[in-house]
Structure formats: C-alpha cells, structure tokens
Design a protein around this nucleic acid. Structure first.
Lengths: 255, 255
DNA sequence: CGTTGCGTTGAGAGGCTTCAACCTAGGTGG
DNA sequence: CCACCTAGGTTGAAGCCTCTCAACGCAACG
C-alpha cells in the first residue's frame, strides 16, 4: 500500500486534496463529524432570513444553496457535496441571505463555532486549509457566473458535470467515472438558468454525442476529454494541487 | 455636527458601514493607503495565471474581476469600487484563476500580506469586519449568479445599478442620487451576459420609463423605488447594518 | 389501480444575438 | 482650423436559442 487508508470523514479527505495532514490534525477534524443527524431529501436546512446556527458540514448526500424570486423562480447558487462546509464566519452575520436545502437524504452536522475556532487556533495548517477552501468556494461562484453568463445550455451542463466529477472524486465518491447525482431536471434548470424542458433536450444532446450517461440518479462520464473540451473546463479554479485534476480520467483507487 | 468627519480612506469608510471603529483602529487602517500608485483606465492589474503579489486595495476609480473564454468572450464577475479589497487570503493561492483590470483611471495600493496580518492580529474588530467584508463579497457573487441566471435584460441592469448605488453610497461617492460609472455598454454586456446591442436597447427602456439617466459616465437614479421594484432588489445581502440601506434615497450628506 | 413525480415530445412565441450600417463626439495631425 | 480617425453609442433586420404551454408516457407507490 503506497497510500495511507483514507479517512471516513469527507472533510478530512477534502482537505487532504489541498495539503497533507498529520495524524493529530486528522483526529482533531474527525471529531467534527462525531455527532451527526440524517435528514430526508427536500429538507430545508437553512431558510433565508434565519439567524445562522452553527456551521453546516455535509457528511453524506448532496445539498444546495438557493435564492428565490418573489414570483417563485428559484436560482441554485451552489452545490454542497460531502466534505463541504458552510461559511466559516457565518457567525458574523445576523441573518442568512440565502437558503440551504437537500437534494437527497443527507447526513449533516452543525459545528459549534467556538469548537471550530479552537481547532483552527491550535492547528494552523487546518486553519490555512479551511481558508483556502473558502477561496475555492468563491472561485467556484465566479465560475458559475461565467457559466450562466456566457455559455450555451449544453456547455453549462457539461461544465457542471465536469466540476462535480472532480469535487466528488476528491472525496472518493467517484467509481468507474460515475458519481451519484440526485438532482432532477427541473433542479438542473434552476442551477443553470434554463427551463426543465430545455435541460431535457440538452441532456439528450449530450447523450446523443456519447459524452454522458445519466440514469437512476447516477451520472457517468463516457468521454471526459470531449466533455471538458465542450465546456472549456479548466479545473485550475478548484486549486486541487495535490489531486491529479489535470488527468482526464481520475479515480481514487490507485495502487 | 452630529457626525464625525469621514476618513479620506475609502476602506475606513466602508468598514464603518459595518461597525464603528475607534480612533486607533482608523489610524491603523489609514496607513494602508499611505503609498499608492495611479494607473490609467484599461490597465491589467492582475492577469489570470499570475502568482498573487500582495493584496489589492482600490482607493479611487473602478475596476473589475473577469474571466475569459478561449473564443475571446469575456465575463466580468465582480466590480471593485473604492474601499474594496482583493482576497484577504490571496497569499494562499499559487496562481490567480481570474484577472483584474481597471474600468477607469484608478488609485490603488498593494498591501503586504504580513502588514495586513499584523493589523488583523492587533485589532480584532478590524479582523472581524474584514472577514465580514469577505462574506459580503461572496453574497454578492451569489446575487450575480441569480442576476444572470434568472432575470431579464432590463432587470439585470436595474439590479446592477441598485447594487452599485449602495456600494458607492457607503464610501461617500453618491451625490444627488448619482454616481460615477465609467463603464461602456459593451462592458455592461460582459457584466450581465448580454450583447452590447441589447444593453443599448435595455438602457433605452430604463430611460424611457424614467428610471435612470446615464450620460457622461455618470449614472443618476431618477426613481429608486421603481428601479428597486423592477429589479426585485433586496439589499440585505450587502449586510450594511449601520447604513440606512432600506431607505430608497440614501445620501451621505446628512445633518 | 389511481395518484404523483418526473422525464419526454411538439408547437408556437419571444427574448436576445448577430451582422451591418450609420452617427456622434473627442482627439490628433496636417 | 479643419480633416481625419477612433471609440462608442444607435438603429434595422434576420435568425436562433430558449421559453412557455400543453400533452403524454411511465415507473413508483399507497
């Protein structure tokens, strides 16, 4: 075994994509996932206007941040996959300007701000890496503005699938070039600024070109180079220095 | 005079919109703008792929963050107005995933990361407020995803103008419901994901409805309530607790 | 076995883009 | 002082990408 056994805690797995952690640091982080709760799909974890309570950590499942228009239109502004953490400094805000809900059943935990602060103070490397994670979240938002701002429907979906592939791979949730995507077509529409009808047609286009297979809430990427080329996907904004993001077909299971 | 004289440093003015600063804290911040350089409009301050050098602070003028597509299309993903700071933790990144350039002639300064770290360590309130500023930057990005994702052309422009009004007002750069907007129609298009032609027609629509006046690089808002209603502008995401953001016509000059 | 959620398909409408031309103001050089 | 040049704003026309509305299929489920 060249590689150390990977932690069961997705936050540890994610941070290890940015840096190498010591045993002590891993243990400190593992404690964060100790007590967790499981919520069904479609649960509102945070409502717009709420006072933030603790820092959300997703351990299993997929969730999303969203904003609503008065007419009922919804814009999904971020996906949360296992290992993703809510805003580190959420405690500074008096009220949330957006909501968070679950795509699928999720195992989540709410971290006491003081607890996290303590860990960050006693483990500078963890602190640095968490702050780096925040920068990546911001970079991802910029990429999403780009996505809805100047890509076509097919390109937007392709880009989303490329991004999620890497983010899921980092936490070891890609198997055989596929990953769980418990998101229906209407939700993909709210993500990409498209109607559900047009999402449907664009997905057919991606399938017809032999780029993806999407069924049973699992997305499989059949031709990663072509999908990346179509989306003009440049993974640098995810800053996964230790992860072999440049390789077209990256999988965790490596000798 | 009920109100203390406002600092000449826009960063101080901005932070005072979030919290009240002591004399000592103000002095510490003022030092950051001591040495500045002036750059002409159209200057590339940071190129995509660059290694970040210092933390950018805009003192005068307007700049923007952008990303390019290979075909030459450009997406502007953020505006930087006086008082706006680049990423606090930019030093953590090895290379920038986006560029920064100036709309107009700008006075800027590059802050030594160690200097800023020192100030943050010795002044906890400044530290908190700067981190709050980062949260607001992120919230603004989410709002921009919303803007290009699910608003019409006219609504997108209206929303942008409402947001900039408040951000400029916070640093005392609104006079008579107008502010400097040194951005041409093609650039507004790259901001909102529209063609320059359609920006032109949408601006005409806003003028025709008597909502704005735009000429000579100055934007004047003629009917703020109507403009806000059109854009569904809810200023909460800017978290300007101390600023009277809720008022339709806010001006700095107050008895 | 009806209901419900979700994917799929068709047809028509509309918002926005592209291309192209033209206009205007400001700056520069002869 | 005027001719020219350039950047940027404006307008028209044609087309297409995407939306809306509506219907239908289908599998899961009580």
């Amino acid at each position: 075994m060249m590689q150390a056994r990977r932690s069961a805690n997705p936050l540890v797995r994610k941070l290890e994509a940015f840096t190498s952690l010591s045993e002590v640091e891993c243990v400190a982080l593992e404690a964060l996932g100790a007590s967790s709760e499981t919520v069904p799909s479609g649960t509102d974890l945070v409502l717009e206007g709420d006072k933030p309570r603790g820092i959300l950590l997703v351990l299993e499942g997929m969730a999303y941040r969203y904003k609503m228009r008065v007419g009922g239109a919804r814009q999904i502004v971020a996906y949360l996959v296992p290992g993703d953490l809510g805003d580190l400094d959420a405690g500074l805000l008096d009220r949330m300007d957006h909501g968070i809900a679950t795509f699928s059943a999720c195992r989540v935990t709410w971290i006491e701000p003081a607890l996290l602060t303590g860990i960050r103070r006693s483990h500078p490397k963890i602190d640095r890496t968490l702050r780096l994670g925040t920068l990546v979240d911001e970079a991802t938002l910029r990429e999403w503005v780009m996505n809805v701002g100047c890509r076509t429907a097919v390109e937007r979906l392709a880009h989303l699938f490329c991004e999620l592939f890497l983010r899921m791979d980092v936490v070891g949730l890609v198997t055989g070039n596929g990953y769980a995507l418990p998101v229906n077509q209407a939700e993909l529409g709210d993500t990409t600024g498209l109607s559900n009808v047009h999402v449907n047609r664009s997905l057919q286009e991606l399938r017809r070109r032999g780029l993806i297979h999407l069924g049973g809430k699992t997305l499989t990427i059949l031709d990663m180079p072509a999908l990346r080329a179509l989306a003009e996907f440049k993974p640098d904004y995810l800053h996964l220095s230790r992860h072999r993001a440049g390789l077209p077909f990256v999988s965790v299971a490596v000798p």
